[in-house]
Design a protein around this nucleic acid. Structure first.
Length: 948
RNA sequence: GGGCAAUUGGCGCAGUUGGUUAGCGCGUUUCCUUGACAUGGAAAAGGUCACAGGUUCGAAUCCUGUAUUGCCCACCA
């Protein structure tokens, strides 16, 4: 590593532009080698290399939202993991015991599907292998490809504690999932039941409600006539029902009407002949039926519709399942058996048409459920599944969010959360797959169910219940999310009270997408409250307070990334750039910075690859600023061989202990204290303000604001202004060095590579002393000086006015000019006087006259530019007629603008109620404006006259 | 059907508690290769802050309604 130029930058001058590729890998290796990411428990490692005592360090913990083992890194991951890394690095620098827990999710359906697809190319199905061999094969697949996404996180600069990496099917984790199931079962919160569930014909499995997406779909509404049996007198011969799914009529067991519906009231209790099936079905009355909709008659198919199922239970109706698990009509469908569901639909309609029983078919748009993963239409199906009773779990989980023990950022998601939690329904957790945690339930031949942590336990329970026959384990596995909801504590070894669990739970921050607020966030909160009470506190007392049970304290819902056209980035659209390509092209720091810079809290982000230029250019700017400062520092050293700066510099760089308040911006170097210029005080104020704003923004989870503050301060204040001034004030070099050092600290969590590299170049620290383990910035509020900033603002204003005047004349920078600067007050004039060298230099002045009273200068000889507190004049060499006219027009336009302003301001001041009701400062400000405008008007009018 | 966001110069966005000459980046135009940086510097043009009412001395900002767009939730056949 020592021969890598990027790690020994002092040996050679820095290159002219920043090239990330060379240094990133090397620095990442260096961090790992020095155990930067490792979080240690105090008892294992009482002191870290910075000299901080681990026992004093409060934990800061994030558990990664475990990516699917099948996954590859996409832009959403890049954003989410950047956010997490930034917070981990920030808190690590704040002196916390920062642990980022990495890992992956076994992702039942996704992974199984992937491996089955691979097998299909060999002409195999999972049934050819059998369960055991198939699961073995998935494990092999996982070992081969499962860590790809974690490797990709390294390229993104992420700093989790890799030693602790977990997988939801690790042995211990597997046991935790089973333990969880057994406990809930024993508590009566898990039950097995026959229900209408969402069946995915593609996955051949049940899905939870959350895995179904409803989409508005164009369909048809079919009106069928069911003949009334034994028509009497003037009774209708038929009842007409409406349906969107004709094929389900094969399983109809009744037709329902509203009991208050006068049209049909008298028919309740009579029977209809179900066409095609020639089955007699009753007419029943149920309040569920809406009189207004359709014909007011609803066909009832308990086995294929959740509402019908409920009605069926109320009226004791049979459940006729006419479809198998592939979506094909079964033997209950009579002669339609064997037809695929959509073919069956066609045939049913055709045959009814032949019988003259189709009244009409209307176009109809309605909401239809599709599989979130497979995309196919969901079939509501009656089947035996396992469920979790959610209501008891939801109650405290809602409470902790309502009470603010857990805070959502942005807060608006609390509404969504509340809505879901108060309307929660039971969770179908069984999946008809092989890859996953197998349901620990064993069936006796008697039909009894025995749930245990293993077969022995189940047998034991069976014996206890007086059953000694064979037991067969439930073939199904658990929903992937049934393991994920344990993630914040099962990763630490729950149900054991491991030292890690005691140390790092509750975690601090969860960063995730709002799309899994129900899948995951809500359920983790429930699980924490449900399962953590058995774990004692670190001090041995029992864990009773909700604040100690919750899995995390803050939840950051990151942005959704869209493409330039506003479409959600997705694999199928192919509109998501590969983060690794962007990293290769622009650099990791650039990609990270750009993502955060574009991502305001709570908004979707439109992202185009070329946006990364923002980050790349910013990194390059910083690189060059640092290069310049180091060059100046070396110059300074050679001209100040024995100065205190030398000592200070060495001290500043070498010893962390000598910076008791964190870094802070201190005044270092004798030269500085003695001759501190306005500009020096200004940059100190700005730097401390930036440091304060950055930390405040971090702490309120406004990471977007963090990047904006840094960008504006570093580019706008430090580079554009202060470094230009340092060129004229060699005595300020030590301060520039210090400010730069602080900048590197401030920026490090966001752009770790370039800052680490520059910091080492600047300080000459050995490679085992890392910025990432050093202190974060501590702002010194005493250095934030509004008066200084206002004063320097006037200087900037003056320079800008001069530049505008020059620009109007199209003077090239090489051409210096005679400048007159008029200040509107003595105070302002004094400020200009103290900043004279800066104004001269940055205003490209050959000579500079500063005066306070308004001598009038002819527009024929001078070009002027006015500001509220000053006027700037540039001496002209000559003015052609053309230029004279151009200038006159410009002034006329300016005059019109100011007259408009005057009108507005004076009408305000003439308004009685404004003067009597507005605060004095506001009125005073308006008066000042009026005065300033007045003098500007006079001057403008005079100038225009002269130019005539 | 319910709920939540958004609407600011050509494009993408800031604008904490109502008082700023309404900002920033990209793009456009002009000037500049001045010894950190052309991945740069200096400047310019460009907006009646979606619309209509209201509250207020004063509204991009608060309230009501409308429109458009997007998202989430929902078992009306």
């Amino acid at each position: 590593m020592g021969d890598r130029r990027s790690l020994t930058p002092m040996a050679e001058p820095l290159s002219k532009s920043y090239s990330p590729a060379a240094s990133e890998k090397a620095w990442y290796d260096c961090w790992e080698k020095n155990h930067l990411f490792d979080a240690n428990r105090a008892e294992l490692n009482p002191q870290d290399p910075t000299g901080r005592r681990a026992v004093d360090k409060p934990p800061f913990t994030i558990v990664i939202p475990p990516p699917n083992v099948t996954g590859i890194l996409h832009m959403g991951h890049a954003l989410n993991n950047t956010i997490q890394d930034v917070y981990i690095r920030y808190h690590r620098m704040l002196g916390h015991e920062a642990l980022w827990m990495p890992g992956t999710d076994h992702a039942g359906i996704a992974t199984q599907t992937k491996v089955e697809r691979e097998m299909r190319e060999e002409g195999l199905t999972r049934h050819d292998l059998g369960r055991e061999k198939f699961v073995e094969r998935v494990w092999e697949w996982k070992k081969k490809y499962g860590d790809i996404i974690l490797e990709q996180l390294r390229a993104l600069g992420c700093s989790p504690d890799w030693r602790r990496t977990r997988f939801t099917m690790d042995e211990a984790y597997y046991d935790a999932v089973i333990e969880c199931f057994v406990r809930l079962y024993e508590k009566g919160l898990i039950y097995r039941g026959k229900r209408i569930i969402n069946w995915s014909p593609l996955a051949q499995s049940a899905l939870s409600d959350e895995e179904v997406i409803h989409k508005v779909t164009e369909g048809k509404l079919y009106y069928f006539k069911y003949p009334l049996i034994g028509t009497r007198g003037n009774e209708p011969e038929y009842l007409t029902i409406a349906t969107t799914r004709p094929e389900t009529m094969l399983g109809d067991v009744a037709v329902a009407v509203n009991p208050d519906d006068a049209r049909y009231k008298h028919l309740v209790g009579r029977a209809l002949m179900l066409p095609l099936m020639d089955r007699e079905i009753p007419i029943i009355a149920d309040h569920y039926v809406d009189k207004e909709f359709g014909t007011g008659c609803v066909k009832i198919t308990p086995a294929h519709d959740p509402n019908d199922f409920e009605i069926g239970l109320r009226h004791n109706l049979p459940q006729i399942n006419v479809m198998d698990t592939r979506g094909v009509i079964n033997e209950n469908g009579g002669r339609f058996a064997g037809l695929e569901r959509f073919d069956a639909r066609k045939r049913v309609v055709e045959e009814l048409q032949l019988l003259g029983l189709v009244e009409k078919i209307e176009n109809y748009t309605h909401s239809v459920g599709y599989s979130e993963r497979g995309g196919e239409m969901i079939e509501p199906l009656l089947s035996d599944q396992w469920f979790v009773s959610m209501k008891p779990l939801a109650k405290p989980a809602l409470q902790v969010v309502e009470e603010g023990l857990i805070q959502f950022h942005p807060e608006k998601w609390v509404n969504t959360y509340r809505h879901w939690m108060t309307n929660i329904r039971d969770w179908c957790i069984s999946r008809q797959l092989w890859w996953g945690h197998r349901i620990p339930a064993w069936y006796a031949e008697t039909g009894e169910i025995f749930v245990g942590r293993n077969e022995e336990e189940a047998k034991e329970k069976a014996r206890h219940a007086g059953y000694n026959g064979p037991l067969v384990q439930d073939p199904d596995v658990l929903d992937t999310w049934f393991s994920s909801w344990l993630w914040p504590f099962a990763t630490f070894g729950w149900p054991e009270a491991t030292p890690d669990l005691l140390e790092f739970y509750p975690t601090s921050l969860l960063s995730t997408g709002a799309d899994i607020i129900f899948f995951w966030v809500a359920r983790m909160i429930m699980a924490g409250i449900e399962f953590m009470p058995t774990i004692p506190m670190k001090n041995g007392s029992s864990r009773t307070e909700l604040r100690d049970l919750i899995p995390f304290r803050d939840v950051y819902f990151h942005n959704i990334l869209r493409d330039r056209e506003g479409r959600k980035m997705s694999k199928s659209l192919g509109n998501s750039p590969d983060p690794l390509d962007l990293i290769a092209q622009y650099g990791t720091d650039a990609v990270r910075f750009t993502l955060l810079y574009l991502a305001p809290l709570g908004q979707d982000v439109r992202f185009g690859e070329e946006s990364c230029e923002i980050g790349r250019n910013f990194a390059n700017k910083l690189w060059n600023a640092a290069r310049f400062v180091m060059m100046k520092r070396d110059e300074y050293k050679s001209t100040h061989p024995k100065t205190e700066f030398e000592n200070e510099d060495t001290e500043l760089i070498r010893s962390a202990e000598k910076r008791p308040s964190g870094m802070g911006y201190r005044v270092t170097g004798v030269a500085y204290e003695a001759s501190a210029t306005l500009a020096d005080k200004w940059i100190l104020s700005r730097a401390n303000r930036a440091a304060r704003d950055v930390r405040e923004a971090f702490d309120r989870f406004d990471i977007n604001a963090v990047t904006k503050v840094l960008y504006d301060f570093i580019w706008g204040d430090f580079c554009d202004w202060y470094l230009e001034i340092v060129k004229l004030q060699p005595e300020s070099v030590p301060l520039a060095v210090e400010i730069l050092e602080g900048i590197l600290r401030m920026l490090h969590p966001i752009s770790p590579f370039i800052t680490e590299e520059l910091w080492h170049a600047l300080t000459g620290e050995p490679l085992d002393v890392l910025l990432g383990r050093d202190d974060y910035i501590t702002p010194d509020a005493g250095k934030i000086d509004d008066d200084v900033e206002i004063a320097f603002g006037l200087v900037q204003d003056a320079i800008e006015a001069i530049r505008v005047a020059r620009s109007n004349l199209q003077l090239p920078p090489s051409k210096l000019s005679d400048v007159i600067l008029q200040a509107r007050s003595e105070d302002v004039r004094d400020i200009f006087e103290t900043a004279r060298p800066i104004i001269e230099r940055l205003g490209r002045a050959a000579s500079l006259k500063i005066e306070s009273e308004s001598n009038e200068y002819s527009s024929l000889e001078y070009a002027g530019e006015m500001r509220p507190h000053l006027r700037a004049y540039i001496k002209l060499e000559q003015r052609s007629d053309e230029e004279r006219i151009k200038e006159r027009d410009r002034l006329a336009k300016e005059l019109a603008r100011i007259r408009l302003q005057i009108e507005q301001v004076s009408s305000k001041l003439e308004n009685e109620s404004f003067v009597s009701r507005a605060p004095v400062q506001v009125i005073e400000k308006e008066r000042e404006k009026l005065v300033s405008y007045g003098s500007q008007i006079e001057k403008l009018e005079a100038s225009i006259d002269e130019l005539r």
